[in-house]
Structure formats: structure tokens, C-alpha cells
Amino acid sequence: MDPTDPRPPALTHWALFLRFLRFGALAFGGPVAQIAMIRRELVDEERWISSDRFNRLLAVMQVLPGPEAHELCVHLGVRAKGRLGGLLAGLGFMLPGLLLMLLLAWAYTRLPIRGTALGAAFLGVQAAVIAVVVRAVHRIGEHILTDPKLWAAALGAAAASLAGVSFWIVLPTVGAAYALAATRRPALAAAALVVGASVAALALLARPEAAAAGAGAAAPTAAALFWAGLKGGLLTFGGAYTAIPFIRNDTVGRGWMTDAQFLDGLGLSGVLPAPLVIFATFVGWVSGGPAGALAITAGMFLPAFAFSLLFYERLEALAEHKRLQLFLAGVAAGVVGLIAVTTVDLARTAAVRTPSLLASALIFAAALAVAYRWRSKLATPAILAVGALVGVLALG
């Protein structure tokens, strides 16, 4: 390491934890606002790391799965106080949002919802959440779908998802096919698609037997919810919203909670100072109680800790690994297709549950217009709060 490179100031482990706890308590507005806050204080003002090195690091974090702001905190904690420092920085950043979400999930499962003003508020929030997710899918797509081959990967993944093909088959297939096509190996790309389609066909043919074998499955264990969170954490490319289809598939898809409850969790996560993936904590609580909430949260955030704690010295080298980057770009494009399909499914659920489709449609349209026109870290919390208010007035 260059001895002239900026370094963090001397801090105790406790002081480091408190520093990132403060970041966590102010982490409103999503990853863009969170990263801007970290950059302003630790790069521009205190010179923990040079601006060029921070930019390279951020580029790597955007390629890897997981919430970028949280991963940056872990990496900077390692830079300041070693692996223990990285663990403390990551815990400090996530703790405020985690505690608040645990409190909200506890209240949600104990307060009367259906047929009350609170229930009407949640119906309004659900319509607003769909608008926020639609805007997020567009924003993510703008950054990821930068050439026709990536668009083809996204559309192919969406079509496969509509046909019922598991994302475990879809994502490796589109990732490999895109990487091979981008390196001018069309025959191998076609072969990857044929292999993926064959595996998908076999999986679909075997589905009736698998469904029968899984009938009457027990309530989720903490281990099952941890695994659901881990899959979401490992497949969160291009933003926290991309975790939605994977967590939903493993919880709503297994009957552990309803789509309406899932939408409520997304709405609550949008107003908290935390990475959006904290919605997994709510999902875990509704599905499996306090133990389930902690288990799915641990799984969701484990990759964000692990990449920096285990591969600190090698992370920036990933920026030079072109073939891996092409594969991950194809996977990320496939995830955009999956989340688009999931958004349509969630919108159908919201439409079925509302007592007034016209009122919910107006909430959605107004929320979508604000999401496109108001670029502020307060936009999402404000949209959801107004959605709740209008829901009480128009849907109660």
C-alpha cells in the first residue's frame, strides 16, 4: 500500500462502532443518500481513503451482490481497525434500522389491521409501494441494461420466470450466455441457452411430484429462513430492490406469509434509516417470529460482511476480472427481468385487495409521478406517508 495514501485516524473499537452507529441512525433515503453521506464525511472531510480509491471500491461493490452502503462501511471499518473493526462498523450501520424494524414487526403482528383505519393506511401504502418499486426497476434497468444483449437477457429471464422456471436455472444461464455472447462466442452462448432450457424443461416436468412431496410442509424453521435470507443476500445485484423476488419466492411462495403482508413490510422498510433489505427482518418476523426475523436478517447481511472481511485485500482486483464482470452483468440483467415480473404479481395482489380500485390507482399514479420528479432522500418516506394518509381517507 502506498504510504502517502490517506488513512483513517486512530480510533478505539468502541469509537469506531459509535461512528458507524451514527451513520446508521441517519441512513435515510436509500443507497444513493447513504453513500453520499459516507463519502462526504469519510472521504472529503476526514480523508479515510482517497477519492480515486473510494470510486474504485464503490465500482466493485456495485458489481458484487449486497447493499453497497453497508459493504462500504464494513470495508472502511477493516481499513481502520482490521477485521474486528469491519464487523463493528457493519453492525453499527445496520443496528438502528434492525431495532426499529423489529419493533414495527412486533407491533404489526399485535395490532388490529383488517377493517381498521390502520388497515386502510396499509392499503394506501401498498399502492404507493408499487409505484416506488416501479421507479426503482426503471432506475436499476437504466444502469444495467446498457446494450441489446443485456435487454435480451432481461426479457429471457422474465419469460422464463412467467413460465415457472426457477431462478437457480435462469440466472446462471443468462449470465453465461451473455458473457459468451459479449466475448464473440455465439456458438457457446447458444449452447449455454440450450443446456439451460433443457434443465428448465426437466425441472418443470418433475414439478408435480415435487409439489406433492412438499404438501403439508411445516412452519418455517430458523434455518430455512436463514437460507432464504442468504439467497437474497447473494443475489442482490444492482440495488436492494433486486432481493424482492428471491425473498418473496421463499416466503410467500411457500405460504409462510401473504403478498399483502410482504407489501406492508416493503412499505415499512422505506421509511426507516436502513438499507432497504431490512424488509427481510419484517418478513422473518411474520413468517417465523423473533427467531425467524434474526435468522433471515443474518442470512441477508452475511454476504455483505463476508466479502470485505474475507477478501479485503483482493476486492479491488475484481474490477480487472473482465470475464467475471461479464457473467455478473448478465446475471444482473436477468434479475431485472425477475423483479419486473414480481412487481406485476405484487400489483395484482394490491388490486385484488383494495376496496376501491380507482382510489388505489390514483394513489399509485400520484406516487409514481412524485417518484420520477422529486429526487430527494426524503422522497420515498414522504410518498409512503402520503399514501398512508390518503388510504385512511379514501379506503377506510
Rank of each mutant, 00 (worst) to 15 (best):
E68F: 02
A69V: 00
H70D: 08
H70T: 11
L72D: 02
C73I: 00
C73G: 14
H75M: 06
L76G: 02
V78W: 06
V78N: 02
R79P: 04
R79G: 04
R83C: 10
R83S: 12
G85D: 01
G86S: 06
L88G: 04
A89N: 02
G92D: 07
G92K: 05
G92I: 01
F93C: 00
P96H: 00
G97F: 02
L98P: 13
L99V: 12
L100S: 04
M101N: 11
L104A: 13
L104P: 06
A105Y: 12
W106F: 15
A107I: 06
Y108R: 08
T109W: 07
L111E: 08
L111K: 09
P112F: 07
I113T: 13
I113S: 12
T116S: 07
T116M: 07
A117C: 09
G119E: 05
A120G: 14
A121K: 00
F122A: 05
F122S: 06
V125K: 03
A127V: 02
A127Y: 03
A127S: 10
A128C: 10
A128Y: 05
A128V: 04
I130R: 07
A131L: 07
V134L: 13
R135D: 11
A136D: 01
A136V: 00
V137F: 08
H138A: 15
H138E: 15
H138T: 14
R139F: 11
I140Q: 10
I140T: 13
H143Q: 14
H143Y: 09
I144H: 06
I144C: 11
L145Y: 09
T146N: 10
T146H: 11
P148N: 07
K149Y: 12
L150G: 08
L150W: 02
A152H: 10
A153Y: 03
A154V: 01
A154R: 05
L155N: 06
A159K: 12
A159I: 14
L162N: 03
V165K: 09
S166I: 05
W168P: 13
W168T: 15
I169E: 03
V170E: 07
L171H: 05
P172S: 06
P172F: 02
P172D: 04
